[in-house]
Design a protein around this nucleic acid. Structure first.
Lengths: 250, 250
DNA sequence: CGATTACTTGACACCGGTCAAAGCCGGTGG
DNA sequence: CCACCGGCTTTGACCGGTGTCAAGTAATCG
């Protein structure tokens, strides 16, 4: 069975086994739920990969609130390569028990010769992460709570699906409502109300700690969800085409 | 007089004139306020640089609302290099008349040999943009309107200061209240109320379309502003850091 | 100038936050 | 096997921050 990152890169960029050889990560490490993986202010020299579990980027506000700025699913990196001696301006925390591995920074480096597919693919992942952040900004800034929640669920559906963690229309989402609240800028109480409301619409079903998508199309319509920003269409081409230095548009 | 990007790179990374030679951008283009610079869905092959004026990243929501996901100040790029054939998931619009220039993608490429300072510096810029997005997410998600506004003003103060556009404690901010509203996830009416409130606290003063910071320290304290995320400390700075004009706090 | 665009103001409604208490597990230990 | 316990979820009552609507004023522009 493929690790989630390889699966993602294969589906997203058509990356074959031979092109992933730079991805030999070391021994996996395990952290338990609620534990910090990286702390704000830290200086990191490694890129950590989530192999299983769900983690998040978060910032603590001075009044004790926690702002979750992204969810890290299997196949996501906790951090991209940082400029040297740059301090982290966020923390990374495990929301569930997580399995992690370090990926050598060399994977991002484009060699003077040889295959460049891997660095390109990793770059695409980074661009997608940025796109997701933009989408969150628009989501939190402009949508009412119910659609905001629905939009997040749609996104998670697609992202989990990409790494093979969606079974039919349902996926396991072992987050507590406080996590969703901190990610959506809502209170726990309201998250609870909103989940019930959406459940009442027949869009989702919850059982245990699973989220079952009842009618994905309806949910996406309700959330005004447009998956373009996830860049799922597998544009498997090198970002670095060599342009002549002088093609000015217009 | 240095262009804003060179100024920024010099102050941020200690980049000297010889290391910036990859930055020979072409003829500047001009767009008027409210005009689009790039449109969602477009495929871009150039990186555009803002030389003067203020632009923004935005997404239109289906109900006609506009979500501004970032402000582009002089010295900022409208877009980073995108993987080829990747469609833009956002639009770029000019909020004021803007002067732009194209920067060849080659500037980002690390050559097989020779200077790598420029690509590294540009990469730092990209990481900072991501950090800013994270900060916006936390800002919009967790802070009440008044502090949210104050935090944005603090950020703009620092960013404008970096490119020499702050004069003492005051800076020109030729945005309309609707722009601030769309960026902060507030209504225009409330932006108006909040500005008056902050003005009443003596933290800012507005005249014409300028924002004057009355007491920067008080404003930053009120906003719980921590400039770490802007990565201003010149982590890549070599021993020879040229101070530039003296208005930079340090 | 008139016309448009931006800013202010007030009244009112409502979404979502807060507080508090009550269920609901799933563990853990006796 | 049951009792207890702590974390999570669910409810209800209440309130306050923001949004909306609408109208009036000021600024900007052709």
């Amino acid at each position: 069975m493929l690790d989630p990152l390889s699966l993602k890169l294969e589906r997203l960029c058509g990356l074959g086994p031979d092109e992933r050889e730079g991805l030999n990560f070391g021994q996996p490490t395990f952290v338990s739920a609620r534990e910090d993986i990286l702390s704000e202010g830290e200086i990191v020299s490694h890129a950590k990969l989530v192999l299983s579990g769900i983690a998040c980027h978060y910032k603590m506000m001075s009044d004790g609130r926690r702002a979750i700025t992204s969810f890290l699913l299997p196949g996501d990196f906790t951090n991209h390569q940082m400029p040297e001696r740059q301090r982290l301006d966020f923390s990374v925390g495990a929301l569930t028990p997580c399995k992690l591995a370090d990926v050598p920074l060399a994977a991002w480096r484009r060699p003077g010769s040889g295959k460049v597919a891997l660095p390109d693919a990793l770059f695409l992942c980074m661009m997608t992460d940025i796109s997701i952040q933009r989408a969150w900004l628009a989501n939190i800034g402009q949508r009412p709570a119910d659609r905001r929640m629905a939009h997040l669920l749609c996104e998670l559906h697609h992202r989990l699906s990409l790494v093979g963690l969606v079974d039919g229309h349902s996926f396991r989402l072992p987050l507590i409502q406080q996590d969703l609240a901190d990610a959506l800028g809502l209170s726990v109480v309201h998250v609870n109300r909103v989940l019930q409301y959406i459940r009442g619409l027949g869009l989702i079903r919850t059982q245990d700690r699973n989220i079952l998508i009842g009618d994905l199309e309806k949910l996406e319509e309700f959330a005004e969800f447009d998956p373009t920003y996830l860049h799922l269409e597998g544009s498997l081409v090198s970002p670095f085409h060599t342009p002549g230095s002088s093609q000015l548009p217009n």
